[in-house]
Design a protein around this nucleic acid. Structure first.
Length: 185
DNA sequence: GCTAGGATGCTCT
DNA sequence: GAGCATCCTAGCC
């Protein structure tokens, strides 16, 4: 499902306006058997949404400063979510610049905390139904190629190849690490 | 160009 | 009370 999300469009309607972007980088987080997943300790209050219906948003606060947004997967009785790590900005770029306090297009949505800020996603959007709410997922142009790497910024289960991205897209985060992964055997 | 380190607050033990 | 699924800046080369 993480691969299938690449190319789709995440769109948020707020009072300030509409902003959207095409998904170019994701990471998969499994359930109780994935020590890097917030779901691995079971359905705690925070992780509860990952044990419910698929197609909803799981938003959490990271390092006290940044929000990160996931799409909950729909595997019967099994927790899981896909972290949206980077977008290619489409609609509402001036609004994104305003929210981010940055001008460069590559600095608007090239990381999970950045894109949440650019689209105005906060804990208020946690558990929203992505098919029927101001925060939606739409069809988009799928990537021609997909590369895989290990996940970024985690301390456990580092070796699992659960990160997927569109190679060459300038909005993908951690470009330096991508090169290193691409060279690895 | 790259690296190190601080900000910051929720979550779970 | 420890541990983060991060971002930004300053400082150095």
């Amino acid at each position: 499902m993480a691969r299938d999300l690449l190319g789709k469009v995440l769109r948020h309607e707020t009072r300030q306006g509409v902003s959207s972007g095409r998904i170019v980088e994701v990471e998969a987080y499994l359930g109780e058997d994935d020590p890097a997943s917030h779901a691995h300790r079971g359905p705690t209050p925070r992780a509860r949404v990952m044990f419910g219906d698929g197609g909803r948003a799981y938003v959490y606060l990271s390092y006290g400063n940044h929000h990160c947004m996931n799409v909950v997967t729909d595997r019967k009785g099994v927790a899981g979510a896909v972290l949206i790590r980077a977008l290619e900005p489409l609609e509402g770029i001036p609004l994104m610049r305003q929210r981010r306090g940055r001008e460069e297009a590559e600095d608007l949505c090239s990381g999970p905390g950045k894109l949440a800020q650019a689209l105005g996603i906060t804990l208020a959007q946690n558990e929203l139904d992505l098919g029927d709410s101001p925060l939606t997922l739409l069809e988009g142009a799928p990537p021609e190629r997909i590369l895989t790497s290990s996940r970024i910024g985690i301390s456990r289960a580092k070796e699992r190849p659960f990160r997927f991205f569109e190679p060459g897209n300038p909005h993908v985060s951690h470009v330096r690490q991508i090169r290193a992964d691409a060279l690895a055997p």
